[in-house]
Amino acid sequence: MKKIFVDYEKCVACKACETACAMENHPSHSLFGLLGDKKTQVNVRVLAVEHEAFPVSCRHCEPAWCMDACPSGAISRDSETGAVILNPDMCKACAMCAMVCPFDAISFKETHRARYGRDVAYKCDLCNDRVKNNELPACVAACHSGALSFREHDQLRRDQAVKNLRVYLLGEEKLPKNFELYRELRRKEFAQRSGEK
């Protein structure tokens, strides 16, 4: 199956993925609709770890521990896309899924899909409807820097191996120069901030 992959060295923490995800999941599908709306649902979050930053979300694991832990029949796998899908109509927000998810990819709140006036679990659904329409997931489509891609894992690994070989044998640059410079800047800024504490 195709999954969303993160090349964290290319992430510039612009959060375009978060915004696009929120818009995709909002009934208005518009940026203005999100503003001030507590029910806004964002399934991806850009996490800063020291000088690095990268988006984290559901990995649609196989086997999916959340799916095996769900006692209400709310989590299932789409047979076509392989996406792990959460049905908010069946979800009782009991947190069995969140209790076992290693990636903290499942959160709780009253979203626009919650039907019973209480919180439900929500997570990335791989933009399942978009993917079935041969579109990219919203976050991937919105990523300006090429940090996010939507691909088959095997293909990604093969390409990565070829690229590493080219870097090693032919001396090709691993990252574009501007990314290298930006990463150096971030490292220095972080070191400076840490020193100030």
Binding site: A95, A98, M99, V100, C101, P102, F103, D104, I106, F108
Partner: peptide
């Protein structure tokens, strides 16, 4: 909260 629960479970 459930924030660190999955990691600690693992």
């Amino acid at each position: 909260d459930t924030r660190v629960s999955g990691y600690i479970y693992n």
